[in-house]
Design a protein around this nucleic acid. Structure first.
Lengths: 217, 217
DNA sequence: CGGCCGATGTATCGCTCCGATACATCTGCA
DNA sequence: TGCAGATGTATCGGAGCGATACATCGGCCG
């Protein structure tokens, strides 16, 4: 691994470039729209990451389609290579803590379209148990606390617990949905993993929101 | 500023030690219970921070009460100094981006008990507009997006938007509550800032959850 | 009585990523 | 014409996480 890129960025970049070639600025905007509610990537990590991916041969700078010239080009358009696609598939196949921690779960989820059903399920379940052990930890620690807490601290706790509980419920719906759509089709050969590194379709099987809108307050 | 501590940790440590002296291990547990749903502090940042605070004179190692000995002590109990209290008050007085960004808002809120009412209000409002501009940004970016998104990306967006909208509603309730409890009391002299660095009581004025318990499922 | 395991406790190192910043070019508009 | 704001590439310093090392203590089981 040449460049010092690691963790989250690599998947984010490779995944985005898999859809279409992009240049840095565009890439960042794309990513921050995709994950804007959860995190915001910065150039300070994006460009080093691109450099690393470049000299590992996972991406290349693309020629502009000739003739576009007015002055000289200043854009640098990056494009996924075959090795890059392979690397992307490798990253999408791993279901481990690195897929369901706070910082990374969003990215993995955003590219679920390209992820095998079995891996999707394991990531969702991993995320759920991560959150549940966090709930458990805080709840028991709270129960053991002798001294009474002030109302602000209490309110913060309450809000935090509620948020995490909501996310667990959300995950439950998603997991149900995944189970329903993977066990429903006629059980073809169970053992083999179906997808190659570059299946271009496979964008079906919607998560289908399950509950009614709940009238929300 | 001697030690390389900055940002969030400093407030977290000083605020915790303001309640009662603690040693590192205990301090970390305390903090991770307090903010367990939002973040988890690590020794890798805690100990350097303590060292920095030590040689800036904001905290000192406390003598064990003599005679406790069996072998030699291994605990190092830290205690806030007068300068430390002053520093804490200084940190609690600043209402700026450093108070309402994602990483820091939780800590500031957790110590609202020691924060002046006016500052509390400005922090809550700052946080709210931060979230609202995030909503705005993502919404318009979404609206401008030509290509249709796959169902997973869509679901992620929906979940993210909903979560942030919920937090905004939560902040609205808190802000209302703050307004009600600060304008209700007879308007004593408005200009002067009442609290010194070391008021030990001042734990009143509850945020009073506004809504009925909502039967929470 | 002895040994071991898990909780308590202090400490460091490498690494990822953010925030601020600098600087250049392109575009619309007054 | 000129300038303000969007587009675009790039770097630097620093915060804080995760893993890890290592030492001590208390309790439990054989």
């Amino acid at each position: 691994m040449t460049g010092p890129r690691g963790g989250v960025l690599e998947l984010a970049v490779l995944g985005s470039l898999h859809e279409t070639p992009l240049h840095g600025y565009e890439l960042r905007k794309r990513l921050n729209t995709l994950l804007g509610m959860f995190r915001a990537f910065s150039y300070g990590s994006l460009y080093p990451c691109l450099r690393g991916l470049l000299n590992d041969g996972f991406i290349v700078e693309e020629e502009p389609p000739e003739e576009t010239v007015i002055g000289r080009r200043s854009k640098i358009v990056y494009k996924l290579t075959a090795e890059g696609k392979e690397r992307l598939h490798e990253l999408l196949t791993q279901a481990g803590p690195s897929a369901w921690e706070d910082e990374s779960f969003g990215i993995h989820f955003a590219f679920f379209r390209h992820t095998e059903a079995e891996v999707r399920l394991r990531i969702l379940e991993g995320r759920r148990s991560r959150l549940e052990e966090r709930l458990e930890g805080v709840r028991t620690a709270l129960a053991r606390t002798r001294e009474r807490l002030d109302s602000y601290t209490l309110e913060l706790q309450r809000h935090g617990l509620e948020s995490v509980e909501r996310e667990v419920r959300w995950l439950n719906e998603l997991i149900d949905s995944e189970r329903r759509s993977t066990t429903a089709p006629p059980a073809t050969d169970e053992g083999s993993i179906p997808a190659g590194p570059d299946q271009p379709q496979a964008a079906q099987e919607t998560p289908q929101r399950a509950e009614k809108p709940q009238t929300d307050k």
